[in-house]
Design a protein around this nucleic acid. Structure first.
Lengths: 208, 208
DNA sequence: TGGTGTGAACCGATTCACAGCA
DNA sequence: TGCTGTGAATCGGTTCACACCA
């Protein structure tokens, strides 16, 4: 177990996780690899390959016990501990993210937010305090947050990222439309909304 | 030319596109595959492979002429025409997307939005009218929009998607945390913010 | 000399097929 | 019988190495 899983494999695992959480069925019941495959748009063999990386908890002719599977996924994704996240950039998108209920459902807590606009500092949005970016180090230390969401303009994204890294942040979800550089060992995940739309337009114009 | 490009290849192409648009350099100048590679975090060979799918417009010992490359990418991503997009679900996230300036920069026009909340209908956010979801068919026909952004709760996402498809929408960018089914020929791109955070936590807990 | 275009080699992920077990 | 676990085969994308050209 604990064998390597590809980037897309992690993505699938998160999808199985999401499906199970939305499943209101007796927790002593079972799911088959086929059911998980259908629910997430993959194949049964793929699901089994993904899951056997973490030991063989499937039972022949029955499937996977939901309770066990949920526990495994919770452990893999660190849901057992508090998943404290900070957010930098309380503009339109940042505010929407603060208000997004889905994070709470998936057990993420946005514990602090940061901005440069002095008019915003000290206010609370959705009960999350807005600090000045200069307070980053102390707040990160206090909250023990390891993950940050960046929703600042592209022009200041690299600067913000540098500050986050030196404050001790280990992983970053970046919404700024900019290619950023992080040191070895720091995880960076980019979400560029325009790029996603570009992909769709590509597919429209270049049907397969 | 017009050979098949993988999903991740399209993504890289969109990144080259973004880099070139941010480049304020004489348009008669050249970029090398190496420069594009460095700017987007890939390799030079990869960049060349991606670009040669669309004919050989690189010039030996010089690189790619920026103006030509921009024109090619604009054509590939349909930027020559109006890229009219509609948005369904004017909640927190929806409003933030309406206000997001990056879409205009990348030449996307959100031409209409939809909701079910009668208190919102008829208002304008960022100069975009909010219609009732029942008006979908006529507005899609009028605006000739082919792409929709979905930012409704997971519970109503499938229903909304069905309506979009029957209204003639061809591609969908979905923010609802739910696995959705679309007919053959309709493109669906999912962005689940919790799943992205899950990936980061996976990487934190399972260092490579 | 410097950078493109591209076949060949490589590598990793997905699929297949089937043994094994309740 | 039904569904898991898994080696083997397959498939596709990435990297390499180098011919070619201004």
């Amino acid at each position: 177990m604990d064998r390597k899983l590809s980037t897309t494999g992690i993505y699938r695992l998160a999808l199985y996780n999401r499906y199970l959480n939305g499943l209101h069925r007796g927790e002593s019941d079972y799911v088959s690899s086929q059911e998980l495959a259908d629910a997430t748009g993959h194949t049964a063999a793929q699901v089994r390959k993904d899951l056997t990386c973490y030991g063989s908890l499937g039972e022949p002719s029955k499937g996977y016990k939901i309770r066990k599977l949920k526990a495994l996924l919770a452990r893999i994704f660190g849901k057992e501990e508090a998943r404290n996240v900070i957010l930098v950039g309380v503009g339109n998108l940042g505010m929407a993210l603060l208000a997004y209920k889905g994070f709470q459902i998936q057990r993420f807590n946005i514990v602090a937010s940061f901005d440069m606009d002095t008019k915003k500092i000290g206010k609370r949005i959705e009960n999350v305090m807005i600090y000045h970016i200069n307070d980053l180090d102390s707040v990160v230390a206090d909250t023990k947050a390891q993950v940050a969401i960046v929703s600042v303009p592209a022009s200041s994204a690299q600067e913000v990222i540098n500050k986050l890294v030196s404050a001790g942040i280990k992983a970053i979800l970046n919404f700024a439309p900019s290619s950023l550089i992080v040191p070895e060992g720091i995880e960076l995940q980019n979400v560029d909304l325009s790029v996603e739309l570009d992909r769709l337009y590509y597919l429209l114009k270049n049907p397969h």
